Computed example of a mutant assay.
Amino acid sequence: MKLKYAYLLIAGLIIISSCKKDEDSPGEVIPPQLLSEVATENDAEIIEFLKTHFYNKEEFDAVSEGFDLKIKFDTIAGANSSKQSIFDSPLLITETISVESSSFGRTDGEVINHKLYTLVVRQGVEQGKPTIGDFSILRYEGSLLNNTLFDASSSQPVRFNLSSVVRGFGNGVKNFQTGVGPMDNSDGTVSYEDFGIGAIFIPSGLGYFDSSSNASIPAYTPLVFKIDAFDYEPDSDFDGDGIPSILEDLNNNGNLNDDNTDNEAEGLSVYLPNFNDTDDDNDGILTIDEIELDAEGNFVGFKDTDGDGIPDHLDNDL
């Protein structure tokens, strides 16, 4: 199974298997909601879940032979009434991410802060963490808050760029250190050891919001992803233009998909953000030919031939 990028900004990169578009029950019409309304509702739903559920902390604290290293959630009730909630766990990371309603085709001009919650049950042993521009190698399982499973990778690692998936997923994964591997197994598969393990709780504004290619995900629905963070590729160059993708976040807002220097030249039928565009200024000269590279082809720096403060690869009036 694959994870699909929600905003449809990157043509051709399909990460979640494309199922038919969400359809409501016959005769049922869900009126459009404002991003601000949904953000408030989703945050309340996620907090309610975090405060009323716990994970199998004891199994991770004292790993025994045969433990599968899988996160399990259960309700705090009955015999489990004394369990520490996920919300109160010191391993829970809360981040605030600004989202523009225009990224979902809205014209109301809203810019709304969203809370992203990441539970890092175990950090990997490798130092360093991926950026939202890097390729990540991991295993995942996606579900709704009611535990309805809508997607999962196979037991083997999958690889994709963290800016080519729903925004909350990529921003959650960048909180994890990774493990050791890959190690070849005798059956042709590979495995990793001492990798990061956790879960990401995503409001719909950082997910699919009012649409999804998966019929199992209703509009305006929060998502939960359990992940095993195996490895990542530092300084990934998604489009092969010679610039590490993370350096193409021109406004430094942690979102590579709203940086598109030649948007007007591309027109309405195409939208290629710079990290997925081999000619960032649409001047007919490839970006890789307008930057500085060393003898091995590694990025060194940007050129500014006419000294106007605009790098050559973003300046189409040289």
Rank of each mutant, 00 (worst) to 15 (best):
A152S: 12
T107R: 09
L91N: 12
T178R: 04
T221K: 02
Y55I: 08
G12R: 01
F150C: 01
A265I: 14
S163T: 07
F150A: 01
T96C: 04
S98R: 15
D134C: 00
G124C: 03
K57W: 05
N274A: 13
E59N: 11
T189P: 04
P203G: 03
F169W: 07
N171G: 09
E58C: 09
L119M: 01
Y232T: 00
Y7G: 10
G179P: 06
A295W: 11
S82H: 05
D210I: 09
V190C: 05
A77N: 09
I285M: 14
T75R: 03
A79C: 08
T261H: 14
D306P: 03
R106C: 09
C19M: 12
I197S: 01
T148C: 05
P222V: 02
G78T: 00
D24W: 10
F299G: 04
P90V: 04
L256T: 06
V29R: 10
K51N: 12
T118G: 01
D22C: 10
G27H: 02
Y7D: 12
D43L: 02
H114N: 13
I93R: 13
G284K: 02
N251I: 04
L119A: 07
K57L: 14
G254I: 07
Q33H: 14
G27N: 04
T118K: 03
E48S: 14
D74W: 05
K226L: 07
E290H: 00
F54L: 07
N113V: 08
D283W: 05
S36K: 13
S191P: 08
Y5A: 12
D304Q: 05
N80I: 09
G172D: 05
D24C: 10
L69I: 06
D289P: 01
K4L: 08
T40I: 12
S155D: 14
K72H: 13
T221V: 01
P244S: 08
T96I: 12
L69T: 11
D74H: 08
S204T: 07
S103N: 12
T107D: 14
N252Y: 08
N214V: 01
A6S: 15
G309S: 10
E126D: 13
S17F: 15
K72E: 13
E100C: 09
D88R: 04
I14Y: 11
G297L: 02
L268G: 10
T148K: 15
A62Y: 08
A11F: 11
P218Y: 06
D194C: 09
D231I: 11
L34H: 11
S216I: 11
R106F: 14
D74A: 15
Y271D: 10
E100W: 13
E100S: 15
G198K: 08
H114T: 02
F195D: 00
G168T: 13
H114K: 03
E100Q: 13
D237C: 06
E141I: 03
E233D: 09
D283P: 05
P273V: 02
N316L: 03
S191Q: 12
S245C: 03
G240D: 02
V165D: 10
A219S: 14
N146A: 11
K57N: 07
N260D: 07
S163L: 04
F54Q: 10
T221F: 04
N251D: 15
L293T: 08
N214Q: 03
N255W: 12
C19V: 04
S153T: 06
